[in-house]
């Protein structure tokens, strides 16, 4: 039972590939454009091109394909729900017009088409975002976030504080996962059983895990606050950074390449349909 170890979202795979070396800001910006594109595109050819593009990026990143795919597992349920909803709640021509045992199957061709599109969109979306997090370290990601949000400081968005919160949150995900695993094992050694009985029983059986976990989390928070204070942390004002983000020629090429592909897909979608 190592359920927690299967979580790949936000799990960084260290590497030196072209994709890893791209500036995180460029990666975030391009991912954002791609996300919009995924929701704008209607044609299957467009989806196919995007899928091909993502495969190419996976190949370039040197991350095992099946490892990326594992990250899709947790959202399969979500995809299923979306598909079911779209399938049954769309108006149009029925797929099976005849009534069977007096009940007509409320599935329409239009619903079917939307359901398939939504499923593809969700999968592509998670595929692209997991590629981003798999090839970019959390520290790089938050640095880039802070940098990208900096212009909004003027309208009162605390870019540095947000980035710091994210860094800390990300930093403690593995710690808390490990601790949950440990507490889980310790309680199981004391004969605790999980996920048995009714819903109240199930919830109760989580107490021996949740209580120690919260105690831990608060202790970590206190320790961290003390450590930050003792190093005179005062927030973002006047802070310089150890790792400077630099745009290189590689980023230019990435922009150009993605720009061409993305605009082609968009053009095909709006004007290319025959």
């Amino acid at each position: 039972m190592n359920l927690l170890k299967d979580i790949t979202i936000g799990q960084y795979v260290p590497g030196e590939s072209t994709i890893h070396r791209l500036d995180p800001r460029v990666k975030i910006a391009l991912s954002a454009v791609l996300m919009v594109l995924i929701f704008v595109v209607e044609s299957y050819i467009g989806f196919a091109i995007i899928f091909g593009f993502l495969l190419l990026v996976t190949l370039l990143s040197g991350i095992q394909f099946r490892y990326v795919i594992r990250g899709l597992k947790p959202i399969l349920f979500l995809v299923l729900i979306t598909v079911v909803f779209n399938l049954f709640f769309a108006k149009g021509t029925l797929v099976v017009p005849q009534k069977i045992y007096g009940i007509s199957l409320p599935i329409t061709w239009e619903g079917l088409a939307t359901a398939v599109r939504m499923a593809i969109r969700l999968i592509l979306l998670v595929f692209s975002t997991s590629l981003l997090t798999l090839s970019t370290s959390p520290i790089q990601l938050t640095d880039a976030m802070e940098n990208l949000l900096a212009p909004f400081k003027k309208i009162g968005i605390p870019a540095h504080e947000l980035a710091m919160m994210m860094t800390i949150a990300l930093r403690f995900i593995p710690v808390l996962i490990e601790e949950t695993d440990k507490i889980f094992k310790a309680q199981r050694s004391r004969g605790a059983r999980f996920g048995r009985g009714g819903i109240i029983e199930k919830a109760k059986s989580l107490l021996p895990i949740l209580v120690p976990l919260f105690v831990h989390a608060f202790k970590h928070a206190e320790d961290l606050a003390a450590a930050m204070e003792s190093r005179c942390y005062r927030g973002g004002e006047g802070r310089t950074r150890l790792r400077q983000l630099k745009i290189t020629a590689l980023d230019g090429w990435a922009f150009l390449f993605c720009g061409i592909i993305f605009s082609f897909v968009a053009w095909w979608n709006f004007y290319g349909k025959l």
Partner: peptide
């Protein structure tokens, strides 16, 4: 087999 983990006081609840 009774197993006592490192820092077992963290399992108290």
């Amino acid at each position: 087999v009774g197993l006592v983990f490192q820092f077992p006081e963290y399992q108290l609840f």
